[in-house]
Write a protein that binds this DNA or RNA. Structure first.
Length: 855
RNA sequence: GCGAGAGUGGCGGAACUGGCAGACGCGCUAGACUUAGGAUCUAGUGGGCAACCGUGGGGGUUCAACUCCCCCCUCUCGCACCA
């Protein structure tokens, strides 16, 4: 009697086996090619969800596949452990963030381990460990020395609920990316990283990342937002002052009829000083500045402005241009001042119409039909210049160059490049993060903490009230400190670092996670980096990936590493989604609250909603832990990989999970049933001695090797790879019925199946490998290569088409000559009938594939 | 508006450089076994009685188009008063 398939027993057994044998310990082996497989490390929220499972299972198949191919693989895991939820837990439940975080890590680690993933846990890092964040501080000091870390007073995005600063990247549709509160503005003294120094390289290197998905590169380019144009100086009438504007359309300079400046622009106060308009303008400026910036810059917002009473001079036309303060002009972009060309800019056009400002046509369309009277909106496309003096008749592109030349020659302006990217504000008014290693001394000013004093440790004893600013402000033993320079009394910086700092270099730390003398060992980094395959969610397309690229370049410029880019290949896995269920009265429902398509509470008919991203609030989540308990890790893994290719959305289906279970059970039974026959078979296979059934199965075996290997290589299309293995199983179980197949052929088929399956469903594969009498791990077996000779067939099926439509099939020997194929097709009975009485115009033969008869 | 991606059976998805559309799985139908269980096994399953018709719609290139070109529609994601 065969043993039953009981994943619950065998999975922990094999996990223990792998651990004891240290199968996944990464070693720097100079004789082997290395492979760095990395999944984005999780925030330790307490429990894993299906998104994590999908992410890690994809990574695990890749890592195991590469191991079997003989690569020296590093496959680490860790914890992005600083962050707000820990602090919120402290406020709400009175649990210390450290306790909460480390307990969550322990829980999640246990959950992750049940999946049977091939991690080298010796390299585990938690960013909240002192020996990790020490190196955040060390890197900060290096960046401070280089002028990359600096402090400035600025308006920052402020989340009133989190009571902290947010980077632009962390504001989504005007709301906090974590808590969704409306983000406001606040002027604060803040620490920044000069990521803008790297804007050009971050942008140009996107061309050198062919292993990244196009949409992620597009999002990064979009975010960096390079635009080329010119800075132009405008004299202010009756003063020695000037206003500098940035424009991408210097070709329209002759059409600039007024000036729009941001309410925050420092010149505003000077311009209106002593003028009649002063009070009125200041009232307007005050009002706009108090308006929410998000509202102010929202689409369709009414354009508003007020005349300052001052004029600038157009350097080309010498005409006076009234200077207006306008709500839509942003101080953060360009110079905070815009030369308004109403005729050729949509916003300026609307503004000019509203306030009755002059409009001047300077770009004519290629067909020459534009007149001021027939224009209902600005003409923003290219054309040729008119009303532009010596530049008339030049086309837009050339005019831009010629006018830029002219401005530079006359000293009125210069070519300029502007970026949308802003410097990265890293100060957070929070406790649970890396303390910024800076001390403020009354005598010496801003002083860095000496390297020997690192890490600046987070004090344990602080009160979490949830009110006011950072808890660190009240931690006396932390704040009060001696100045490292003069030994006088001084105060520590109480801001902590944005947690994106932690995750910007963790992939380097993994290479030498235990090194306590430096952030990483350059020799180890040299061996392992860059990451060959990075896998994670699309939600990190801009922030995390951009910051990591930035850090890599900074660390390179510090002379510590040699690479330019951290991640050679990036796979952004799709979200895990599920159907939603909704009762008209009781809202979202769990599947178990539905009986016969009706709400279990009120009996109303349930609406089957859209398939949406799994979320607790919509009650369409599935718990990985329960699934593993029911089906085992291998079934969960297999379904996650089979339901969709990794980059696409995965729609969760409970029946689909059953299907995965059924497949594994069939494999189990198949091997058990045949184990006695093939266990001790040692013979070699001679293709020429096989009968047709054996030949067929042997061929299918090798076709499966080919297909599975190619599907993995072709962007990790695991779904089709699994389909191929299912075909092989169908062939073995169906094909062998009634026909006795030589034991050697059957053995080759089953062993190949187990080896190919092992990266996908490793536990059952190990178990079955041993059932067949093999010693050791199936992971030690080299990934099989297919045999060209086994795949070749003597006979091929040739498709016969008439006028491109399928009309018949014939079997011929492979490699048949064109004439032979033609003859065979034309002699086919059905074909004869169909072409009877018609003239054959042409016959096309594709070797070993098809014949197309054109009549 | 700009950028990226997608649209194929009842469903998830296959079809790699143009060459048998619908692999594989789910679901469904019929049957078998059974201590009548949401288990397992076998067969069938795009539409149409049929000739034939079928990959969002319309044109084109080609002996041949899901695949290449042009136009349009729909959906998803990202960005958006960026000068």
């Amino acid at each position: 009697m065969e043993k039953k398939y009981t994943p619950k027993e065998m999975e922990p057994k094999w996990q223990g086996y792998w651990e004891n044998k240290k199968l996944f310990t990464a070693k720097e082996d100079p004789k082997k090619r290395k492979y760095y497989c990395l999944e984005m490390f999780p925030y330790p929220s307490g429990r894993i969800h299906m998104g994590h499972v999908r992410n890690y299972v994809i990574g695990d198949v890749i890592a195991r596949y590469k191991m079997m191919q003989g690569f020296s693989v590093i496959h680490p895991m860790g914890w992005d452990a600083f962050g707000m939820p820990a602090e919120n837990a402290a406020i709400e439940k009175g649990i210390h963030p450290a306790k909460w975080t480390y307990e969550n890590i322990a829980n999640m680690k246990a959950q992750i381990k049940k999946l049977g993933l091939s991690y080298d846990w010796n390299r585990e890092v938690a960013t909240c460990d002192e020996d990790y964040y020490k190196w955040n501080q060390w890197l900060f000091l290096k960046m401070y020395e280089k002028g990359i870390a600096y402090k400035k007073r600025s308006f920052v995005n402020w989340c009133p609920s989190c009571e902290t600063v947010l980077a632009n990247e962390q504001v989504e549709d005007g709301s906090c990316w974590r808590c969704s509160s409306i983000v406001g503005q606040k002027e604060l003294e803040q620490w920044f990283f000069k990521i803008t120094d790297y804007a050009e390289e971050l942008l140009s290197c996107t061309e050198k990342l062919p292993g990244w998905p196009e949409n992620v590169l597009a999002m990064q380019r979009n975010w960096i937002g390079r635009s080329t144009g010119a800075e132009i100086d405008f004299k202010i009438a009756g003063t020695n002052e000037k206003i500098t504007v940035f424009t991408t359309r210097q070709d329209t300079l002759f059409g600039a009829t007024f000036m729009s400046i941001a309410p925050e622009h420092p010149l505003v106060k000077k311009l209106i000083k002593g003028k009649k308009t002063e009070k009125e303008v200041m009232a307007f400026v005050e009002r706009i500045m108090h308006e929410d910036k998000i509202m102010r810059t929202a689409e369709g917002m009414e354009k508003e402005g007020i005349f300052t009473g001052a004029y600038a001079i157009n350097p080309m036309t010498k005409k006076e241009m009234p200077i207006w303060v306008a709500n839509f002009v942003l101080m953060e972009y360009g110079t905070g001042a815009v030369m308004a060309v109403p005729c050729h800019d949509t916003r300026d056009f609307a503004f000019a119409k509203k306030y009755n400002l002059p409009i001047q046509l300077v770009i004519q369309n290629p067909v020459g039909t534009l007149t001021l009277d027939n224009m209902k909106d600005a003409y923003v496309d290219e054309g040729y210049l008119i009303n532009s003096g010596e530049f008339n008749n030049l086309k837009t592109a050339e005019a831009k160059e010629r006018i830029a030349d002219y401005l530079e020659k006359e000293g009125m302006g210069k070519r300029s490049i502007n970026y949308r990217l802003r410097d990265w504000g890293i100060s957070r008014q929070r406790y649970w993060g890396t303390p910024i290693p800076i001390i403020y001394c009354d005598k010496c000013g801003t002083v860095t903490v000496p390297e020997k004093d690192l890490p600046v440790k987070l004090p344990k004893d602080v009160a979490f009230t949830g009110k006011g600013a950072s808890p660190l402000l009240d931690a006396k033993g932390f704040v009060d400190v001696k100045c490292p320079k003069c030994n006088g009394s001084a105060k520590r910086e109480t801001d902590t670092m944005d947690t994106f700092v932690d995750s910007s270099w963790y992939f380097l730390r993994y290479t030498s996670a235990k090194d306590d003398t430096r952030p990483f060992d350059p020799e180890k980094v040299k061996y392992w980096m860059p990451v060959d395959q990075y896998i994670g969610g699309i939600e990190h397309a801009v922030m995390h990936l951009l910051y990591s690229r930035f850090f890599t370049k900074v660390i390179r410029d510090l002379g510590l590493i040699k690479i330019d880019e951290p991640f050679t290949n990036l796979l952004t896995q799709g979200m895990v989604c599920k159907e939603t269920l909704r009762c008209p009265e009781h809202g979202w429902l769990f599947p178990e609250d539905v009986k016969d398509n009706r709400c279990a509470t009120c009996g109303k008919e349930v609406e089957r909603g859209r398939v949406e991203k799994m979320s607790k609030s919509k009650k369409n989540v599935v718990d990985p832990d329960k699934l593993i308990d029911n089906y085992g890790a291998d079934t969960v893994r297999l379904f996650s990989l089979f339901a969709a290719p990794p980059e696409k959305y995965l729609e969760w289906s409970d029946q689909g999970v059953d299907g995965a279970w059924r497949f594994l059970s069939r494999v189990w039974v198949l091997v058990q049933k045949n184990s006695d026959i093939i266990k001790d078979v040692k013979g070699k296979i001679e293709i020429s001695e096989l009968d047709s059934a054996e030949r067929g199965l042997y061929r299918k075996t090798h076709l499966t090797i080919k297909k599975v290997t190619e599907d993995i290589e072709r962007d990790f299309h695991f779904n089709t790879a699994i389909a191929a293995m299912m075909e092989l199983v169908n062939e073995i179980s169906g094909g062998s019925e009634g026909k006795v197949v030589q034991a050697e052929v059957l053995k080759a088929a089953l062993e190949t199946l187990i080896i190919l399956l092992s990266p996908f469903a490793p536990h059952i594969s190990e178990e079955l490998w041993s059932v067949l009498g093999n010693k050791g791990s199936v992971m030690d077996i080299p990934w099989p290569k297919y045999n060209e000779g086994a795949i070749k067939t003597e006979d091929v099926l040739i498709v016969i088409q008439i006028n491109g439509k399928l009309r018949g099939k014939i079997t011929l020997s492979a490699g048949a000559a064109e004439d032979e194929v033609k003859k065979g097709a034309l002699e086919d009975e059905r074909i004869k009938e169909l072409i009877a009485g018609k003239a054959i115009r042409k016959v096309i033969v594709v070797k070993d594939k098809l014949v197309n008869i054109v009549v």
